[in-house]
């Protein structure tokens, strides 16, 4: 641990600062694309889980349980080797996008399901009594209300997704963790463990902390508004 206080180690990290920033950019890129895929899958899973149709609900359930109850790192490896052996030629980066999207799609789906189920039955009844079909009821009445409820847990999902890009190092990704690991074990740069991991951690923190803060603030505001509305009804 003495490297933490070693000026030479810090100088090496500083010298390679562009490498770390590059790792961060790759991590954010994987996170953003993974998030888009996760949102699309999660949206579909959430709707299926609340559809009231047994077949669709079963599919959603199996999907969620499978991806939530096996480690992401295993899914990443499996996907990588399965695709490689089946002759599909895609880059490590794309494997990363897909793996993150599939895994977090399950969580986003659960967040969506809970959000839709939190809307009172009377809202569905009102929309149906006016002649809205399923898609219109969702679009005009249910989802606009759901979005507000699920924003805080969704942001927490984004934070988890950013941190989970670290699993991509196992297939040799160029994400921040892989970069950091390569740096500390590298022939010319090796040995600067303390400073390198501190910098890597700090970069993660700088991205994730503001998001967590935002989620917390949203949640408190939402609670305050609920309190106000309850007070209003009693008055």
């Amino acid at each position: 641990m003495e490297t933490i206080f070693s000026a030479k180690a810090w100088a090496t990290v500083w010298q390679y600062r562009a490498t770390f920033l590059n790792g961060l950019i790759n991590t954010l890129q994987s996170a953003v694309v993974g998030l888009v895929i996760a949102m699309v899958i999660g949206f579909a899973i959430g709707l299926m889980a609340t559809s009231g149709r047994r077949g669709l609900q079963a599919v959603a359930r199996v999907y969620v349980e499978f991806f939530q109850n096996t480690p992401l790192i295993l899914q990443v490896c499996f996907l990588y080797y399965a695709l490689a052996y089946s002759g599909v030629r895609i880059t490590v980066v794309v494997v990363g996008f897909i793996a993150l999207g599939l895994y977090h799609g399950a969580y986003v789906g659960e967040v969506g399901r809970a959000g839709i189920q939190a809307i009172p039955a009377g809202q569905f009844a009102a929309a149906r009594s006016q002649g809205f079909g399923y898609a219109q009821t969702m679009r005009y009445v249910i989802l606009p209300q759901t979005v507000k409820i699920i924003l805080p847990p969704m942001v927490n999902q984004v934070v988890a997704l950013i941190k989970n890009t670290s699993c991509l190092y196992i297939i040799g990704g160029a994400d921040l963790i892989a970069t950091t690991y390569n740096f500390v074990t590298g022939a010319s740069t090796g040995g600067a463990y303390g400073p390198a991991y501190l910098v890597g951690g700090l970069l993660f923190f700088l991205v994730c902390y503001p998001l967590s803060m935002m989620a917390g603030r949203w949640e408190r505001r939402l609670k305050a508004r609920d309190q106000m509305q309850k007070g209003g009804e009693q008055a």
Binding site: P120, G122, Q123, A125, A126, R128, S129, Q130, G131, F132, G133, V141, P144, Q145, K148
Partner: peptide, 20 residues
Amino acid sequence: AALNRQYSSMVFQQFNLYPH
């Protein structure tokens, strides 16, 4: 959906206005 659209409306015990 088509029949309700054309023929009827409903007033509920719990009002069920759209809060958003």
